[in-house]
């Protein structure tokens, strides 16, 4: 009894270790892939229900109401974030500022996604994944 329990814990440890390693590996792969989107082509692409409703260049500062005002997008100094949302959970407001290729903000209740695309670096991201 005691022995099988111990064996189980060893297996536990190994499996948890493997998952953690895989997560770290994936994390660095994704991070390396996400160059800061500073090129002139860098934009925040907004989609609702998978349909594109707007593109906002990251080099143009401004405040933009999205999706009939359900969310407010702010672009400043090459970064984009959601400053206002009419949903109850406000998760998208807590997701912070995005500026790297592939970084995104999602507002699931409003089915809205903002993702950074970086013009010329796009091909690299797509080629990798």
């Amino acid at each position: 009894m005691e022995k099988t329990e111990k064996k189980k814990y060893t297996r536990d440890l190994i499996l948890v270790g493997i998952v953690l390693l895989a997560a770290l590996l994936l994390f660095f792969m994704v991070r390396n892939n996400q160059e800061k989107a500073t090129g002139t082509g860098a934009e925040a692409v907004v989609t609702v229900d998978g349909l594109e409703i707007g593109r906002y260049p990251l080099k143009t500062n401004g405040t933009f109401p999205l999706n009939g005002g359900s969310n407010i997008l702010v672009v400043e100094n090459g970064e984009a974030w959601v400053s206002e949302a009419n949903c109850p959970d406000k998760v998208c407001m807590g997701m912070g500022k995005i500026s790297r290729n592939g970084e995104f903000i999602a507002c699931l209740p409003n089915r809205l996604i903002v993702v950074v695309e970086g013009g010329e670096q796009n091909a690299l991201v797509d080629g990798m994944t």
Partner: peptide, 19 residues
Amino acid sequence: ILETDVLRYYLPFLLLSGT
């Protein structure tokens, strides 16, 4: 539902936090 695949970038975070 959102017809997107950007969320795949999210997987490592979820693996880490989930573990």
